[in-house]
């Protein structure tokens, strides 16, 4: 049982990270904490992409002084690169929104920001 758990440990880590991010987004009222949950979810996605393309005892897909030709899958790593940059862009955007909301309402509590409430 223990060795089986260790064998699939990366995937279980992905699941735990996903659920932690979702829980932070659902239960927290502070906008900054919601953003932290979203970042956690992003990390889970990146880890899942990297783990999917791993080969046992594989080396990085770079030919400069490569120790062996048994390489991990490069496409998922390229996708992860794209995902990280877009994550940085969206994080900056959302943090700016949080700053503007704090400037306008004087609070970052999502329940007290209700000028648009019908």
């Amino acid at each position: 049982m223990m060795s089986y758990l260790l064998l699939k440990l990366p995937y279980f880590t992905v699941v735990v990270l996903t659920l932690l991010g979702l829980a932070a987004m659902v239960f927290k009222k502070n906008l900054i904490k919601i953003l932290m949950g979203l970042s956690l979810l992003e990390s889970a996605v990146n880890l899942f992409l990297i783990v999917t393309g791993y080969r046992t005892d594989g080396v990085a897909p770079i030919y400069t002084n490569a120790p062996s030709l048994h390489m991990t899958l490069p496409t998922v790593q390229a996708l992860t690169l794209t995902s990280i940059v877009i994550g940085v862009a969206t994080s900056a955007m959302m943090l700016s929104f949080a700053m503007v909301i704090y400037k306008k309402y004087g609070t970052v509590n999502a329940e007290k920001v209700k000028k648009l409430k019908g």
Partner: peptide, 14 residues
């Protein structure tokens, strides 16, 4: 559900 799905995924051999 996610844990059940993750247990079936292959790790180390795509």
């Amino acid at each position: 559900g996610l844990m059940y799905l993750a247990a079936d995924l292959p790790f180390g051999a795509p």
